[in-house]
Write a protein that binds this DNA or RNA. Sequence first.
DNA 1: ACGACACATAAGCATGTGCTTATGTATCGT
DNA 2: ACGATACATAAGCACATGCTTATGTGTCGT
Lengths: 104, 104
Amino acid sequence: MTEADIFKALADPTRRKVFEKLAGGSLNASALRDGLEISQPAMSQHLSVLRAAGLVREQRQGRFVNYEVDPDGIVAIGAWLARYRAYWPKRMEALADLLKDMDQ
Amino acid sequence: MTEADIFKALADPTRRKVFEKLAGGSLNASALRDGLEISQPAMSQHLSVLRAAGLVREQRQGRFVNYEVDPDGIVAIGAWLARYRAYWPKRMEALADLLKDMDQ
DNA sequence: ACGACACATAAGCATGTGCTTATGTATCGT
DNA sequence: ACGATACATAAGCACATGCTTATGTGTCGT
């Protein structure tokens, strides 16, 4: 789970779509395939990349594997972004408020 | 300047180093090469990618080109991160405060 | 026990990415 | 005007990445 892993993982459009789907709630690998025209192994490989990056975590339930957003990845991106806080413009202030308010 | 451009740009370790250097202040292409063992064309190509992503902007000064962090890219990442605010853990609250406080 | 199912892994292939050397373009100093 | 300097662009190459098909592993229902 390094910065390299995280940015590389998010560089792929399919993986960003998967991540966004998971933001709406936990889903298993098959459910994640719906809509995305992709093979089962391809999805499995993408999920592996997302998991190695710390963006997603899994929970086995019988023969299903439920995936969900892993806050660790989110935190890592936030921490990276914080290093460039000197360049946050004024309009980001509202965003910072929003982020804080929603964290409950 | 799309999410794809941004994450792809940051997926490369050399480009992240360049970006971090620029966070310390404006620098020209030659100065950015110091320390990084990389050819002049390679740096030029990296800067082109960073600029296309909206992470960096340039300012010609004679035969020098000064590069600096472009807040647009920062904002774009912040906006992307905001979409997953539901998964910001408690410890991110402090970060949101920090980001807000520093934005002055 | 056995077939069906959910997912992971292996191997091979097409395309993308980052590097190099060579060269082009524009500006500076003298 | 001329060479030196700063940077960009072009072309070619090695390696990484994402996909596919084929197969492996473990779990469920009957």
